[in-house]
Amino acid sequence: MARRKIVDAHHHFWDLGRGYNYPWLQDKPSGEGMLGDLSPIVRDYGVADYLADTAEYEIVASVHIEAVPRDPLEETRWLTSLDGDIPTGIVGFAALNGPDAERMIAAQAGFAKVKGIRQIVNWHQNPRLTFTPHDLLADPAWLSGYRLLGKYDLSFDMQLYPGQMDAAHRLAVRHPGTLIVINHTGMPADRDPHGIALWRDGMKQLASAENVVAKISGLGMVDHHWTTDSIRPFVLHAIDSFGTDRVMFGSNFPVDRLYGSFASLYAAFGAIVADFSEDEQDRMFRANALRHYRL
């Protein structure tokens, strides 16, 4: 894998010195949710840090995903002010259920690097796992905001749990012109037989909609002590479901830096897909992200 050309389809930057913009990170660094102890990443993380982490690989482009900022437009303005081509594309935040949803979507769309919107929709009955107080996929205001994405030619990065995949599939079918990018391999957090079956079936169902693609990323968040063998079935099922033209690899750095190095993560990805052709591997590691994010 050394020096393979990579488009990292999912990473974050933050500059905590710019002010109080990431309450989830700055308020509770000891961690109270599924991510665990956040203290190792409660520091500035920018282009130089990222390039140091990825030094063994040739990062030809990258996609910055909103990092749940208090001021979404300030985050996007800062990212677009950075020198160089990293990040190459941006997925910004907009609260689709907010009273000013269209104003925020339009403002994000005004930045040339912005390719899509993300608002985390992970809802779970377990309060330790949930990211939202209610299921946004069943919220009429949120669904109304989602309809606006097509007007502004933006994709949607969807971070959800398997229990929400049926609703996400229905949403994709209702809005075939809006690309949905499933984040973090569908977040298989529940590892009992029912939870695994729900994830496996849900990924297949989502893949049946042609306007849905998947990112293989974020597995450390649901498996803090992951190994190549422990993530292998999730990586391979995602590829089996979506095919080699509709999956992308992403690092989720620096969040997944909590659970391993960039080199160990991409070495694991490389080992898992070693039996695929070189053309298929190149698509998953590079070309698909360029195409789906219009970089």
Rank of each mutant, 00 (worst) to 15 (best):
G36E: 05
L38V: 09
S39V: 09
I41A: 00
V42A: 12
D44W: 06
Y45L: 00
Y45E: 00
V47F: 10
V47P: 07
A48G: 09
Y50L: 15
Y50F: 15
A52P: 01
A52M: 01
D53S: 04
D53R: 09
T54E: 12
A55M: 05
Y57P: 00
Y57K: 00
I59L: 13
I59T: 12
S62H: 08
V63S: 06
H64K: 06
E66V: 08
A67V: 06
P69T: 02
R70Q: 05
R70S: 10
D71K: 13
E74W: 09
E75V: 11
T76G: 05
R77L: 05
R77V: 12
L79R: 01
L79I: 12
T80R: 04
S81D: 13
S81N: 05
S81T: 12
D83M: 09
G84D: 10
D85C: 07
D85V: 09
G89H: 04
I90K: 08
I90M: 02
V91W: 13
G92R: 12
F93H: 13
A95C: 04
L96H: 03
L96E: 10
N97Y: 13
P99G: 11
P99S: 08
D100P: 01
D100H: 12
A101N: 07
E102T: 08
M104V: 15
I105M: 00
I105E: 06
I105N: 03
Q108H: 15
Q108G: 06
G110P: 11
G110M: 14
F111D: 04
F111E: 05
K113D: 02
I117C: 03
R118G: 09
R118V: 11
R118I: 07
I120H: 00
I120L: 13
V121H: 02
